[in-house]
Amino acid sequence: MTNTQASQTSHGNLRYERGLAKLQEIDGEGGVKVVESLADIAPDFARLLIEFPFGDVYSRPGLDLRSREIAVVAALTAMGNAAPQLKVHIQGALNVGVTRTEVIEIIMQMAVYAGFPAALNGISAAREVFAADDKKSAQSLAEPRALAEEAI
């Protein structure tokens, strides 16, 4: 291996490690599942997905994660054709401190620039994310109760 190849490999690994850490900080399990789903068919794409957006862009100092996720939810809503990605980033926005009310307001704002159909699709995606989040929260609350009841 030449010095240039070693440097690229080392640099690539740092980008990947930084990106994976940032992805986990934002999306937790959800983001990792997306990457894992690509491993058998497009592992290079999965690596690029970690290195570029999360290792390079999300890791920049100019904006906090909350602001970045607000921008991503707005952009994906405006696109109108990226529901799976929008759902992941709505959850990511919630994970980094954006409230449900703010998510809905962001999506409603996009109706002005991207049209009502895109905003309606975004609201539908938000509804699904909120419902899944509520279900997960209810299960988390029920587990300690069930354990306490078993102990009695």
Rank of each mutant, 00 (worst) to 15 (best):
residue 9 T to G: 03
residue 10 S to V: 11
residue 12 G to H: 12
residue 14 L to G: 12
residue 15 R to T: 01
residue 16 Y to H: 14
residue 17 E to V: 03
residue 18 R to E: 08
residue 19 G to M: 04
residue 19 G to T: 07
residue 20 L to R: 15
residue 21 A to M: 02
residue 25 E to H: 12
residue 27 D to Q: 14
residue 29 E to M: 04
residue 30 G to R: 12
residue 31 G to H: 01
residue 32 V to C: 05
residue 35 V to N: 09
residue 35 V to Y: 04
residue 35 V to W: 02
residue 35 V to H: 07
residue 40 D to C: 01
residue 44 D to M: 02
residue 45 F to Q: 04
residue 46 A to D: 12
residue 48 L to F: 14
residue 48 L to R: 09
residue 49 L to P: 00
residue 49 L to A: 14
residue 49 L to W: 05
residue 50 I to E: 03
residue 50 I to G: 01
residue 54 F to L: 08
residue 54 F to T: 02
residue 58 Y to E: 04
residue 60 R to N: 05
residue 61 P to Q: 13
residue 63 L to N: 03
residue 65 L to W: 02
residue 67 S to R: 10
residue 70 I to W: 01
residue 71 A to M: 15
residue 71 A to P: 03
residue 71 A to N: 14
residue 73 V to W: 01
residue 73 V to K: 00
residue 77 T to C: 03
residue 80 G to I: 14
residue 81 N to Y: 10
residue 83 A to Y: 04
residue 83 A to R: 13
residue 84 P to W: 00
residue 85 Q to K: 04
residue 85 Q to H: 03
residue 85 Q to I: 05
residue 87 K to F: 04
residue 88 V to T: 03
residue 90 I to M: 03
residue 91 Q to V: 00
residue 93 A to T: 14
residue 94 L to H: 04
residue 98 V to G: 04
residue 110 M to L: 06
residue 111 A to E: 06
residue 111 A to C: 10
residue 114 A to C: 06
residue 118 A to W: 10
residue 120 L to W: 07
residue 121 N to M: 12
residue 121 N to V: 09
residue 123 I to W: 05
residue 123 I to F: 11
residue 123 I to L: 15
residue 125 A to V: 08
residue 131 A to C: 07
residue 131 A to S: 08
residue 136 K to Y: 07
residue 137 S to G: 12
residue 138 A to S: 15
residue 138 A to C: 06
residue 139 Q to T: 11
residue 140 S to K: 14
residue 141 L to E: 15
residue 143 E to I: 15
residue 145 R to M: 11
residue 148 A to E: 15
residue 151 A to Q: 15
